[in-house]
Design a protein around this nucleic acid. Structure first.
Lengths: 212, 212
DNA sequence: ATTAACTTTGACCGTTTGGTTAATCTATAT
DNA sequence: ATATAGATTAACCAAACGGTCAAAGTTAAT
């Protein structure tokens, strides 16, 4: 029994593949580019991951889970609605700052092959998830325009505000550059802006001013 | 052999190319697929559009303009702020309903080649555009949390709410399917929801209840 | 009917691509 | 030292790809 073999090699390949797939997409990525980036022979790719599809599948699954898991705090953290909203935008946008190409990659690959997302989300029971969030905040729910009915709209709105700027970065940067705004500073400011924007939109008018 | 096609060949090619590029992206699209879809020989593609890049450039430029032009009403229409917001979401989401693959295509191609967007937006002076919108609504501006400073945040927020659901359609559909929501109905409801959501978030607290 | 210009095609070309193969290297266990 | 098993490589392959070309088809003016 030997097996002292560089466990590093497989990791090096995986990292190189992640970078190239994120940059070029599945269709645009070249096995030779991945090999070059990993500093190894192309045949070694097929030794560890039999085909391009296998390699892509491994990378996509890992990145998709990484992405989706970052939404869990919405359901799990034990905070009030407003605390939770502030916490989410702060943490989620910080996460995307460190993985700026992730949204574009995931969105693009899913739009080219919608079946992929089912594999990753097959175990998630949204019905339970969304009912539990209503139940969990039952006591403070009367203060907000938040019901089981409009929850899909609200949740997708929150996701949009966090994720879209990274998916549309190329466009935003051109528009911002024109008026002297730095994208990174815009993103930094967005953590607070998005949180307060959503809270303000959700709060019932009669609750905004206690002395109604 | 009689070709009774009322459509000109170049148009047929362009339409086929649009469909294939939207579906597969530049890297994933095949000239043979476009030829097949147009019902012509592959060599004829190169007769009308010399290379794949030429053909793609033509398609991308047209679609990008189509997409960006739909934001013009924000700056041009002579409406109050609230009317404008409602008008925009109604019209823009309706437009995306008829071109659901447009956002994903544009975002993806720009992220793979950010230079492309500059060609389309080179003539747009955002500085002028954004200052003019402030000036245009100067009289009603005191009622809203809307300044020259947070305008980038507000504008990108509005764009996010309209565009993102289409870019993330694959994900949303899986999540919705789980709880018995139809994507098309969700989109239809979004026109009003997004408008009211933004208006509520922007309106100053002291203006929500006139009898402060 | 012939010409001339434009359109369309099948066959072909050179390159790139994902993938394979047989040989070589490396490191241990005996 | 040598056998053994995994790790790595250079060279190679067939298919797919974007692109070309010469020939054939089409059309309308002379």
């Amino acid at each position: 029994m030997i097996m002292v073999s560089d466990k590093q090699t497989e990791e090096k390949i995986f990292e190189a593949a992640t970078a190239v797939f994120e940059e070029e997409g599945m269709a645009g990525a070249r096995m030779q580019s991945i090999a070059n980036r990993a500093g190894i022979n192309k045949a070694l790719l097929h030794y560890y991951f039999r085909t391009k599809d296998h390699l892509f599948e491994a990378v996509f699954t890992k990145l998709a889970k990484k992405m989706f898991h970052k939404f869990n705090p919405i359901f799990e953290e034990n905070l009030s609605i407003e605390e939770k909203i502030r916490f989410f935008f702060r943490e989620h946008i910080s996460f995307l700052q460190q993985n700026p190409k992730l949204p574009g990659f995931i969105l693009n690959e899913i739009s080219h092959n919608p079946e992929r997302v089912k594999k990753v989300l097959k175990n998630v029971d949204f019905k339970d998830l969304w009912k539990s969030i209503i139940k969990h905040h039952k006591d403070e729910l009367h203060k907000y325009n938040l019901t089981e009915e409009n929850l899909p709209q609200v949740m997708t709105t929150i996701a949009s505000l966090s994720v879209f700027p990274f998916a549309a970065r190329g466009i935003f940067e051109v528009a911002f550059n024109n008026i002297g705004i730095d994208f990174d500073k815009y993103i930094e400011a967005r953590k607070d802006f998005a949180a307060e924007f959503v809270i303000k939109a959700l709060k019932k008018t009669s609750e905004v001013l206690p002395d109604k």
